[in-house]
Structure formats: C-alpha cells, structure tokens
Amino acid sequence: MTNTSVLIKTLFKEKNTTVHKIIGLHVLTLLITLIAMILENEFNSINFANLSLVYGGIGASTLFIRFALRIEKMWTSNTYRLIPVSESRLYAANFLSAVASFVYFLILEVIIIGVSSIKPLSTVKLPTHILLGYFVCGLIFMIMLVLTGWTFNCLAHLIENTISNFLPDKWQGLLQSLLYVATFILLLIILSVLNNPIGTIINKLFSPLYSASTPLNIIFTLLMTSVFMLLWTVVLTIPNLYLLKHWVETE
C-alpha cells in the first residue's frame, strides 16, 4: 500500500503548480498596475493596497474553484483511483493536500499583499498579539470555509455520479441540470443558516476598532463559525466516503 504521507506530499506538489501560476499572475498584474499608476502620475498607496487586495481575492476564488474541480475529478480518474490505498485514505489525502496547498497560497498572498500595503499598514496601531490572533483565526476561518465548500461540492458530484448509474444514457443531461438546480437551492439554504454568523463577522470587521473588546469579539466569532463549519464538513464526509467506496467508479 502507498504511504499516506508520501501520497499527500505528491498531491500537494501537484496542486502547487496551480498556486504558482496564480501567484505569478498576481505579481504581474501588480507590476502593470504600478507602472500604469506611475506613468499617469497618480500613484496612491491606499488605492494600490486596495487593488492588491482585490487581485488576491480574485486569485483565491479562482484557486478555490480550480481545486474544487480537481478534487472531484480524482474520484473518476484511473490515474488516482488505481493507487493502492483505501478509499478513506485517498479521500483524506485529496482534501489535506488541497488544504495544505491553499494555506501555502494564503501565506504567499499575505506576503504579497503585505508588501504592496506597507505604507497603509504602517499606520495601523494594533498590539502584535492581536494582529497575530487576527491572522491565525482568519487563516483557520478561511481553511474551514474552503474545506466546507469543497466537501459540499464533492457530495453533489458523488450523488450525481451515483444516480447516473441508474439512468439510461439519454437521461444523463437532464439529471445534470436538475442536480445543479438542487445543489444551488441547498447551498442557498446552508448560506442562510450561516448568514447570521458571517454577517456578524463582516459587521465587526468593518466597525471601527476603538473598543478593546472588539478584537476579541471578532476572534471569538471567527472561531465559532469555524467550529460550526468543521461540524458540517465531518457530517458531509460520511455520505461522501460511503458513495466513494460503494458506488462511484472511474470513467
């Protein structure tokens, strides 16, 4: 049997190719923006920092979607499904490598955004331990957010794949569109459940940081939401593993 940590490492390296492409694009876009601003004599450090943040956001969303596709592709691919490991280990390796690669991406992004926002950041006067707290909790929150998203997407595809086993070929297209609608509705329901905690976080993030209790509040809310998403991930993993083991085959 293949060693699980070796498998995770291999898949991690594979996924990092995508990370490097997106990071490269981010840096390139920043350079072009910088040159354009200087040429037009309109350089503004706050605008520049904001733009860098926006690019980072677009990059993160792209990576999230790319990894979601990659994760589900693995279940129907002979190249990965024939690796001699149990379904649960392959499942764990697939998700852990994606998370690790995403964290790697976030760290690189923090560096890039940090460097491109040096001037505005230097005006922020928060104690280091709170900044560190923000950083760690934000990281945990982001990880749980993408993990829940991927697990959910994975479930939708595994269900679709399983059901398609029981339908004749010409029905496959109809099934797919029905499932996309169903998934979308389900996602809306989950989001509305999540809406309150997320709303609170956003409110707090954008509220002025005057009172001493605010940072702790934010950290607390971030952590609570993360725990809540962790539960979701665990719950969704059970049907995922069952379907993977008994129903979903390679193409």
């Binding site: 049997m1 592709k73 691919s77 002979n78 190249t79 001699p84 390679t250």
Partner: peptide, 17 residues
C-alpha cells in the same frame, strides 16, 4: 478491489496525467 490494486498494473492508470 483495494487489495487487488496492489497486484495489478493497468495501462489506463496513465490516463489522466
């Protein structure tokens, strides 16, 4: 199936590289 994977080498394992 997962035990058999150790004993069999199938040319389709190169499909999705």
């Amino acid at each position: 199936p997962s035990d058999r994977k150790q004993l069999v080498s199938f040319s389709h394992q190169v499909d999705d590289v």
